[in-house]
Amino acid sequence: MNWITNYVRPTINSLFSRREVPENLWTKCPECGTMLFHRELADNLNVCTNCDHHMAIVARDRLRALFDGGVFVEVAVPEPVADPLHFRDQKKYTDRIKEARKKTGEKDAMLVAEGDMGRTGVVVAVQDFSFMGGSMSMYVGNAIVAAAERAIALKRPLILFSAAGGARMQEGILGLMQMPRTTIAVQMLKEAGLPYIVVLTHPTTGGVTASYAMLGDIQIAEPNALIGFAGARVIEQTIGEKLPEGFQRAEYLLDHGMLDRVTKRTDLKDELVTIVRLLTRQAPAIKGDLPAPDITPTPAMVDADK
């Protein structure tokens, strides 16, 4: 009886019992409600395959999708003074930083990298909204300055992906000071004759919009991204009028001349390669892994022209 109870019955139950399915295998699209398999969603860069809704994507995954073969080298960013104001609300600022670093695996809200994109050398800075809302801190200011200096040293274009709710309140005026500081970094790029391209992602608001996020030579946005300085409710209360439908969304800003393009995330790399090579006066990129064709005229080509 013990043999049947202890061995046979558990073996039969294990063969016919329902297997547990991990909860993280499926993601529900917040826009259309479609259940999306996690690998399919990741392969599509966190864009819903049913309705094209653009979900959040972390900075490191964006960089892997952007650089050739997912290979890039991180650019070192100087560490600022930790907690300069000794700020505390419900928690210490230092504790919030530790939690954000543990959650995201990143030092702060911006990641800077260099590498090849479509066989074209670029420097890329990506703001990570999952790190304290992508808030503009002294570290973010240091990252943009480091990105600009590295782009100038390598004579490469700088591409910046913005995503933030504004300046980091725990750093007070020191966070707000990054607005003029990053503006000067952008001016350094322009004086060096290097392209500065901004891709505004959801959301880009506050002091970020009022500084480096709107100073690009080319302004691109992802579909339906929220872009603005103050919130819609604050603006309505200030002007005493109802705002238009879709106000502060990427498509509305494109229609009113604030943006140059609205581009799907899955098409963004090809478009950036085209723009970068155009601005740097390079030949169009060659699709695929084959090297560029040799266009040196041959004797047969010369005879054919005659």
Rank of each mutant, 00 (worst) to 15 (best):
N2W: 08
V8E: 09
P10I: 11
P10A: 06
S14A: 11
L15Q: 12
F16A: 10
F16K: 04
R18M: 07
R19C: 09
E20Y: 15
C32N: 13
L41N: 03
H54Q: 15
I57L: 11
R60H: 09
F67C: 02
F72H: 08
F72P: 01
V73K: 14
P78R: 00
P84G: 01
H86Q: 13
D89S: 15
Q90R: 14
R96K: 15
K103E: 10
K107R: 12
E114F: 06
E114V: 11
G118F: 02
A125C: 02
V126H: 05
Q127H: 10
G134E: 00
S137E: 09
M138Y: 04
Y139D: 07
A143P: 03
I144E: 04
A146F: 11
A146Q: 05
E149H: 15
K155A: 12
P157M: 09
L160V: 13
L160M: 15
L160N: 02
R168E: 14
Q170Y: 14
M177D: 06
M177L: 10
Q178W: 00
R181V: 14
P195I: 06
P195Y: 02
T204V: 15
G206I: 05
T209Q: 12
A210H: 12
Y212T: 01
A213R: 00
L226P: 04
G231A: 05
V234Y: 03
E236I: 00
Q237R: 11
Q237G: 02
E241I: 08
L243I: 06
F247A: 07
F247V: 06
F247E: 01
E251S: 04
Y252F: 14
L253E: 00
M258Q: 08
D267G: 08
L268P: 03
L278M: 10
T280W: 13
R281G: 10
Q282C: 11
T296L: 08
P297I: 08
T298E: 08
M301T: 15
D305T: 05
